[in-house]
Amino acid sequence: MSKKNNNLLLIFTRNPELGKCKTRLAAKVGNKAALEIYKFLLAHTVSFTRKLEAEKQVFYSEAIWENDIWDNHIYQKKLQNGLDLGVKMQNAFQDGFDSGFEKIIIIGSDMYDLSQEDMEKAFAKLDDHDYVIGPAEDGGYYLLGMTNFKKELFENKAWGTDTVLSHTLEDVKTENHFLLEAKNDVDLYEDIKDIEAFQPYLKHIEE
C-alpha cells in the first residue's frame, strides 16, 4: 500500500452525454441544460477530491474516457460492472478490499454540497467506526464507507427510491456506524432552483 493510509475513494459517474444524464432534471430544464449542469457537478467533484489523501478510482457507466475531466495521473479509471447499482457498488468495494485497501468510501458525482473537508471527516470516522453513511435528503444516501465488507448493504434495495437509506440503516443497526449530516443531492429542478451557482443554467426556465 502507498502512503495514502490505505484509503480508497470510489467515484461513480455517468458518461456526460446529451440525453443520458440527469433525466429527471432534464424533464424540467431540457437535455442541453441538464448536460451542462452535470458537467458543472463533475467539475465540482474533481475540485473536492483531487487533493484528497486517498487512492481514487472513477467508475464510468458506459465507457472509459481517457481524455476528460478526470486526470489520468490522479484517478484510476474503471468501468461499472453489474446488472444494477447494488451489484456495481458491491463489485467495486469487493475489488478494493481484495486489493488491500482498509477504508473504502463511495460517492456519486452529483453532490454540490460536498467538500474536501467532508470527505476527510468521513475517512476519519472510519478510524473508530466500521461504517459511515451520508444520508441524502431524498431518502437515499450520498456517501457510504466501510472497513468491513458487508454484502447485505447492496442487496434487496429499490435503488433510486426513498427507501434506500432506511433499509441500509436497518442493515447496520447492530454494527458500529456513524451518520454524517444529511445533504441534498441533485436530481430534480427543485434541488437547484434556489442555489446561486446553478442560475446561469436556468435562465431559460419559466416558473
Rank of each mutant, 00 (worst) to 15 (best):
S2V: 11
S2G: 11
S2M: 12
L9R: 03
L9N: 04
I11H: 04
I11D: 04
T13F: 09
T13N: 09
P16K: 02
G19C: 05
T23A: 15
T23E: 14
K28T: 12
V29S: 03
A33R: 06
A34W: 06
I37V: 05
I37N: 02
F40A: 07
S47G: 05
T49Y: 01
E53T: 13
Y60L: 08
W65I: 15
E66Q: 15
E66R: 12
H73R: 15
I74Y: 05
L83I: 15
L83T: 14
K88N: 09
M89K: 13
Q90N: 13
Q94M: 14
D95I: 12
G96T: 08
K103F: 02
I104H: 02
G108R: 00
Y112K: 09
D118S: 04
K125C: 06
K125E: 07
V132S: 03
P135M: 05
G140K: 06
K150E: 08
K157S: 10
H167F: 13
L169W: 11
D171F: 04
N176C: 07
F178C: 03
N184W: 09
V186W: 06
V186A: 06
Y189V: 05
E190W: 10
D194F: 10
D194R: 09
E196C: 11
A197L: 07
F198M: 01
